[in-house]
Design a binder for these strands. Structure first.
Length: 214
DNA sequence: CCCTGATTCGC
DNA sequence: GCGAATCAGG
């Protein structure tokens, strides 16, 4: 497998969502956990709560001259002492904490009557992974009440509940918001904030790849 | 042991 | 650039 733009995109997305490298790896398929981590680093998006990097900054009175067999008699890599942090490089690159409260906070009503939200109104989680690949739901008493794949029509909400493949995976099944594949509630989830072109600045790719609960 | 991310280094 | 091997903490 190679790192296509699309795969890189998904990697970024998931990585920033806090999915673990292994999750990302088998979500993407065809790559190992190491591959994902390696790629993440090369992409520059590294560091995230790492279990092994809790401490950093100082206190190294006990260096660990571990015998590294893999360490060949290679040329001294760090021959040149790294110059201290360039003062200019330590520019205050902090993101502006000012939330710009002068934005009118646009709230419009969508065609179905649901509320459109601005990006700032984004609620914390957008967890449920909307349309992803559907796998055949096997009929079982477990989901007798639930709306199964076979019960779908253009009159019921097709918002997936749970993840495909899981025993209780089913669909919302509520009456749809006319003209939409989902009920009013899930329309609100599915169709968030598409503000006028000018207003919306960074619409970074928000592909799906939703959380997978294990 | 399992998991995690970080790093190294041959390819 | 890629990722297996390795390291290292939880």
């Amino acid at each position: 497998m190679s790192w296509t733009d699309e795969r890189i995109d998904r990697l970024k997305s998931m990585w920033e969502k806090g999915l673990t490298a292994s999750q990302i790896a088998d979500e993407l398929g065809g790559v190992s956990r190491n591959a994902v981590i390696g790629k993440a680093h090369r992409l520059g998006l590294k560091s995230r709560p790492s279990p092994v990097k809790a401490n950093e900054g100082e206190a190294k009175p006990a260096p660990k001259p571990k015998a590294k067999p893999v360490e060949k008699a290679a040329a001294p890599r760090a021959a040149a002492p790294a110059p201290e942090r360039s003062p200019s490089a330590a520019a205050p690159a902090q993101a502006t904490p000012t939330p710009r409260s002068d934005m009118p906070k646009i709230v419009s009503i969508g065609p179905g009557g649901f509320m459109r939200q601005g990006p700032g109104d984004q609620q914390a989680p957008i967890p449920p992974a909307p349309p992803r690949r559907l796998v055949p739901a096997k009929p079982s008493p477990e989901i007798a009440d639930k709306t199964s794949l076979l019960d779908l029509s253009d009159r019921v909400c097709r918002w997936p509940m749970g993840h495909p493949g899981e025993p209780d995976f089913h669909f919302c099944g509520e009456a749809v918001n006319p003209g939409f594949p989902y009920c009013v509630e899930h329309c609100g989830r599915a169709y968030q904030a598409q503000l006028p072109r000018g207003v919306r600045r960074p619409p970074p790719p928000m592909p799906f790849g939703g959380p997978r609960v294990r």
